[in-house]
Design a protein around this nucleic acid. Structure first.
Lengths: 233, 233
DNA sequence: GGCTGCCATTGATCTCGATCAATGCGCTAG
DNA sequence: CTAGCGCATTGATCGAGATCAATGGCAGCC
């Protein structure tokens, strides 16, 4: 399983703090496991245990299943990111690959339990959780107060900031998710998302090519559309 | 300052794990500070540092200020709860008292830094943060997929579960927040919240008395209105 | 205990986004 | 290169909730 070795090595270099002892690293290596998902493949961490997932290649969505028919996308995950994945609570969660994806999963509980004396790993975990909390609260604010235009503009900004995939030029990204997935993450319908894309294209804010290539033509206009106040403070 | 002594003592008894060493407790006691807020009084933890707040008496709202006029209530806090309060990020947060409130604030960063060898405190912090993350994600799901009726019904359930204030009978609570505050937390307007209250009253699901006393008359009907699936799974 | 101001309720209308319904087009297989 | 399917786009209509506008009633104050 060279895959696992390579994956873990990358994780060690890019995420773990540099001053970890070999013992810590060995401990982690024992708890982690590599996963390869093809497009639309899903992992269901059924047990009530939380996990962390380091995304190496590809991209994923974290989906909450409701009693109703509709599903809500709670977060996206891109290469280089460490996601927090809740165990099953009131509503079940699933991690679903948007495209072929390689990731490293680590049970949160054993990570917490394992670090007896040294708290470096704990600190890493809490930092990531606090980041996720911040993103989730930002999401709540968006869903609670923003219009469809503001949501899509904000979404595009977020995708650009997180580097999305296959950046050809600094203004262009390829979105790995479908319109339906964008809609589910923004609390909108496919049609509304599509209409917003068209209107923003007509306004000269963006250009699109094919189904998933987006180029930003007017950063200031897009920021305005996203609801960042123009002047004042 | 007997207030502080009493507050900290209560915090120790009700929240802290029982096996903490005296050294740990002393360390915490040094970092914590008591706050007394009158109704509408606010604390602005301006520094970019996160805090934890133990609510002893009263109730609070955690508000995100947007560039726009509208504000979004991110969480409520009730007695006995330990809230996570984000430092200023993209949007500023404020903790505002709904009524006269006593609370104990603890800087998260120094709590993390202080626990050198022992990781009990860290574990406490991460547990609370993960709880908050779960609540926030549930909130996202509500805002992204639920109707006004479902939101208010769900809100009432949550208030009952968290014991709200001054429970006269098991079916009756006093809501310490105004209609405007309910609306801001649910992503609705005052008028819609009011209309939903009236309709639910007409349907015989609830009874109201004065501005803030609510009695549940039909638990099953309310659960149905909240969107918990009737039969099936 | 009456006054007064704020908050909640109720009504009328409007608007944004959902829904229903075709049509168009990019991507993949063959 | 072509065919065909699935996703995206566009159009028409509907409806939930926002907005605008009065009215009603609870609570704090003199």
């Amino acid at each position: 399983m060279n895959d696992f070795i390579d994956l873990f090595d990358e994780f060690d270099r890019r995420i773990l703090p540099h001053h970890l002892t070999d013992a810590d690293i060995l401990r982690l290596r024992h708890q982690a496991f590599a996963l390869h998902l093809r497009a639309q493949g899903h992992v269901d961490f059924g047990n009530p245990e939380d996990h962390f997932a380091y995304i190496a290649k590809g991209s994923v969505k974290l989906v909450a299943y409701l009693s109703s028919s509709r599903e809500q996308i709670v977060a996206f995950g891109f290469p280089g990111e460490l996601m927090h994945i809740p165990g099953a609570g009131r509503n079940g969660f699933s991690l679903i690959a948007l495209e072929a994806t390689e990731l490293l999963a680590i049970p949160a509980a054993s990570l917490l339990a394992a670090s007896g004396k040294d708290s470096t790993l704990l600190r890493l975990a809490i930092e990531q959780t606090i980041l996720a909390l911040g993103r989730s609260r930002a999401n709540s604010i968006m869903l609670g107060t923003h219009s469809a235009r503001e949501r899509l503009a904000g979404f595009l900004f977020a995708m650009f900031e997180r580097g999305a995939r296959h950046r050809a030029s600094p203004e262009t990204i390829r979105l790995p998710m479908s319109r339906a997935e964008i809609a589910d993450s923004l609390g909108l319908t496919i049609e509304t998302v599509s209409r917003q894309f068209s209107e923003m294209r007509n306004l000269g804010l963006i250009e699109t090519s094919g189904r998933s290539i987006v180029t930003i033509r007017d950063w200031e206009g897009l920021a305005l559309a996203a609801g960042q106040m123009p002047a004042a403070a």
